[in-house]
Simulated scan of single mutants.
Amino acid sequence: MAAAGALQALLRFLSQDARVPLAAAIEKSKHLQQAGLVSPLDISKSSLESLKSIFPDEKVAKQVLSAAKRVVKRHPADSPSSSAKKRKASLMGDESTTSPAALEASLALPEGATDEEDITNTVLLTNRAPLLLAFAVALLKYTMPDQPLSSRLSLAQAAVSVNSRSKAVSLGLEHGKSAEEEGWGQGQPTVKIMGREIRVLKRWGYEWVERPIGSAKHVKLEHVEDTPIIPQAEVAQESVPPALWALDLEALKKGKGSLKAGMQSGANSDLPIYTAQSARAYLLKSFNSAPATDPTPSVSPKKKPNSSTKVAEKERNLGSLLCALELLFESWATVLDAQELDKRAWSWYVRVRPDVEHGVAGWGGKGNVKLGDILALRRKG
């Protein structure tokens, strides 16, 4: 995986420090590696003439050479500054300073009721977005089993955000073209989650566990261009796909990043992603217990639960919801392939999502979700 990490660092140097458009950086990275120019230090020691054999445009060749010399001068050991490390840690969920196993462990989701009768009798009060997020997180365990929890959380949050923006546009709450429609992220591979196309960033070299080889059921990355984003000769076997982050294209658009066709990136244009931590935090806080419907309430009012009790209750509710969803997807995963399971997941979500008012009045509205309704969608027999 060292070669994959070196490739990622080289691409980062070209697109950020040397300000080469990402598509061109991807194309030229293989030629640089073949010439033994695998780091800013190597490039800084090369000649302009040798770089011109890779970058025919002399202006670009000079730009790359100058950038390499600047980087080496700032950081003689080719190591990122502490501020750069902090930016990357924030962007990638502290992936750069925490072991993959520790990061995945920190993202563990709670467990709730496992008894089917208890799950059936559980009713939650929530709104539609976190329920969709829970659906997507649980679904990805079956459609993209090679992905770690951190990736599943990131990808699921992206699907929710894309869906929310689409709904906001239909209600007249947002206007104009989306970042995707304007070309942001062009050239990045995509995956489909509950019918939504999501642009992704490959996490080269991220190994959290020893993954099974040859899984045939994972969702394959789709490319919008004929050439692959990363030279396949430089990565691990295709049967073990890299972990992914979902790109936040709207944030990229607002930040004037580097992934729009024809644009060049700035030196500090870290690509924004949907972080696993924010998705997890959203899930943890979003599932209250539905109010009791007892027609003969007790005369003495119940004591209001304290904050720690409410937090624990929400965690149990989330665990029960995820258990119900796993039982649903597990029942169908043996007879449906990943693409068909992804298609059906949306219709199942629509059938159990909370009822809210139509139009703008229902935006963000809450309603009841009966976990028994989710279990009723399981495959019979």
Rank of each mutant, 00 (worst) to 15 (best):
K217L: 10
K217Y: 11
K217W: 09
K217T: 15
K217M: 13
K217Q: 10
H218T: 05
H218K: 04
H218P: 06
V219H: 07
V219K: 08
K220W: 06
K220Y: 05
K220G: 01
K220I: 02
K220R: 10
L221E: 08
L221F: 03
L221Q: 03
L221D: 06
E222M: 08
E222L: 14
E222D: 09
E222Y: 06
E222G: 01
H223Y: 15
H223T: 10
V224Y: 03
V224E: 15
V224F: 04
V224T: 14
V224N: 11
E225W: 04
E225R: 08
E225M: 05
E225K: 07
D226V: 10
D226K: 11
D226N: 09
T227P: 02
T227A: 15
P228R: 00
I229W: 14
I229E: 15
I229G: 01
I230N: 06
I230D: 06
I230M: 02
I230S: 01
P231L: 08
P231D: 14
P231C: 04
Q232T: 05
Q232L: 07
Q232K: 04
Q232G: 01
Q232I: 03
Q232M: 03
Q232D: 06
A233I: 10
A233C: 13
A233D: 15
A233H: 12
E234N: 09
E234H: 10
E234D: 12
E234R: 09
E234T: 13
V235G: 03
V235E: 08
V235A: 04
V235N: 02
A236S: 15
A236R: 12
A236F: 11
A236I: 09
A236E: 15
A236W: 09
Q237W: 12
Q237H: 12
Q237Y: 11
Q237V: 12
Q237C: 11
E238I: 02
E238Y: 00
E238T: 03
S239M: 07
S239T: 10
S239L: 07
S239Y: 04
S239K: 05
V240S: 10
V240M: 11
V240L: 15
P241H: 00
P241R: 00
P241I: 00
P241S: 00
P241W: 01
P242V: 02
P242D: 07
A243V: 01
A243E: 12
A243K: 00
L244Y: 06
L244F: 07
L244W: 05
L244V: 02
W245F: 14
W245T: 02
W245P: 00
W245A: 09
W245C: 07
W245L: 05
W245H: 10
A246S: 09
A246K: 02
A246Q: 07
L247V: 15
L247I: 15
L247S: 05
D248C: 02
D248H: 01
